[in-house]
Simulated assay, not measured.
Amino acid sequence: MSASSEDGRTAPTTDDLRARAEDAREELGGTVDALARKADVKAQAKRKATAVKDAAGQATGQVLGKGSDAVRQVRDRVPEPVRAQAATARAELAHRTTTTVAKVRKVTPAPVLMTVRQVAGLLRRGRGPLLAAGAVVLVAGAARRARRAS
Rank of each mutant, 00 (worst) to 15 (best):
Q62K: 11
T99N: 01
L17I: 14
R25P: 03
T97R: 13
A51N: 04
G61A: 06
A56V: 14
E27P: 01
Q73C: 05
A39R: 06
T88K: 10
D33S: 04
K53I: 13
Q85G: 14
Q62R: 15
L28I: 05
R18C: 06
K66Q: 15
P81Y: 02
E27V: 02
V71N: 03
R72A: 11
K38C: 05
A36H: 06
A43E: 07
K38E: 11
A34Q: 00
E22T: 04
G61Q: 03
A94Q: 09
R20P: 01
A45D: 14
H95Y: 12
D15W: 08
G65H: 00
E22Y: 01
P81A: 05
G57W: 07
Q62W: 06
A24K: 07
L93I: 11
K53M: 12
R18K: 15
L35K: 01
D69C: 02
P79Q: 06
V78R: 04
A39V: 04
A39K: 06
G29C: 09
R77Y: 07
V78E: 01
G67D: 09
G30P: 03
A43R: 07
A87R: 07
A86M: 00
L35M: 05
Q73K: 15
A91C: 00
G30D: 06
T98Q: 14
L93V: 09
K48W: 15
K53N: 13
A34W: 02
D15L: 13
A94E: 13
G57R: 10
A24V: 06
Q44N: 09
V71W: 03
Q58D: 11
R77W: 08
L93H: 09
Q85S: 13
T31L: 11
E80D: 14
T50M: 13
K38G: 08
A84Q: 10
Q85I: 08
R47K: 15
D54N: 15
Q44M: 08
E27L: 08
R47E: 12
H95T: 13
V71G: 01
D54T: 10
A19K: 11
D76S: 02
D76G: 05
G67K: 13
A55S: 07
V63Y: 11
T100R: 14
Q44W: 08
V52I: 14
A87G: 01
R90E: 11
L93E: 10
K48A: 13
A91R: 02
A21C: 09
A51Q: 10
D16F: 05
E26V: 00
D23N: 09
Q73I: 05
G30M: 02
E27K: 03
A59P: 04
E80L: 10
V101Y: 07
T31A: 15
R20K: 12
A87L: 08
A56H: 13
A70N: 05
R83G: 03
V74I: 01
L28M: 04
A87F: 00
A56E: 15
G30F: 01
